[in-house]
Write a protein that binds this DNA or RNA. Structure first.
Lengths: 149, 149
DNA sequence: TAGTCTATATATAAGTG
DNA sequence: TCACTTATATATAGACT
């Protein structure tokens, strides 16, 4: 690492410091907090999708951002998962193994609980332009993975 | 590294292959599937707790395992988050920094939806030993037979 | 507020007990 | 099923677009 003619490598300068270690405690800087939330939410949802695909598990995630926006992830959908709970966890063994692409509009109102939740979600969607509305999980399974079949 | 006598180290054999790359598709081998589910569920919950602490976000996760067991994570609790939805996601103050062990019996019934969910959860709890009443870091995981009660 | 890039922090697949 | 180990696959902090 000597006699480097390339002016850019004189001291073997690194472009970035790379990922830094952080403490798991409330982030005070608001801008950082927003960025971190956004990135980690994406990561969390990705993890959720992976576990659902890898293990054929049903999963639902509801999260309120620091800006009070509400994001949700559901596979096959939040409503369906709640329904599973209400019917005793899918009764029988097969349910969990069948991945339902979630193409239903969700207006089926399995129960009052589900119906109420939908109403809330709709209103939330309107007032805070929830981003989960048009995320990949609304698409057929083929699209979201790195691979398929 | 010239221990040629040991047939196993002839070519400087590594102890393990380390983490292997896997495809994000249904794991067919049941034993692997369960191990993977267990590990990833732990990782997912840890991520959820991190985002809740780092960003002061409220979060709820419901997941049904391949064995049809139901696990949940909530910060400060699943019910509280549902309540936030129903009230339009207000508040959002410092509550996130306080880890509430969720020891209430949940009979408060904010709304019909919540009440129904609780009823379901209770029944589910009985038939599949749900672990949601405790945070994963408080107990040695749900334990197959080690779990109390 | 979401992508990109880099370097590094973490998560985790396999294997073992 | 849980705990550890090891090597590697991924996630992501910080800076910038």
């Amino acid at each position: 690492m000597e006699n480097i003619n390339n002016k850019e490598l004189t001291i073997c300068k690194k472009k970035t410091m790379g990922r830094r270690k952080i403490e798991i405690k409330k982030i005070e800087k608001k801008s950082s907090l927003q960025v971190t939330f956004s990135k980690r939410r994406t990561g969390l949802f990705r993890k959720a999708s992976e576990i659902s695909v890898l293990c054929g598990a049903e999963i639902a995630i509801l999260v309120q951002s620091p800006a009070n926006k509400i994001y949700s992830y559901g596979h096959p959908s939040v409503e369906t998962l709640l329904h599973r709970y209400q019917t005793g966890g899918g009764g029988g063994g097969g349910a969990a193994l069948n991945i339902i692409p979630y193409m239903e509009d969700g207006r089926d109102k399995y129960d009052e609980a589900v119906r109420k939740l939908e109403i809330v979600k709709r209103s939330v969607k309107q007032e805070s332009s929830i981003s989960s509305t048009r995320f990949w999980w609304d698409e057929p399974m083929e699209g979201h993975g790195t691979l398929r079949t």
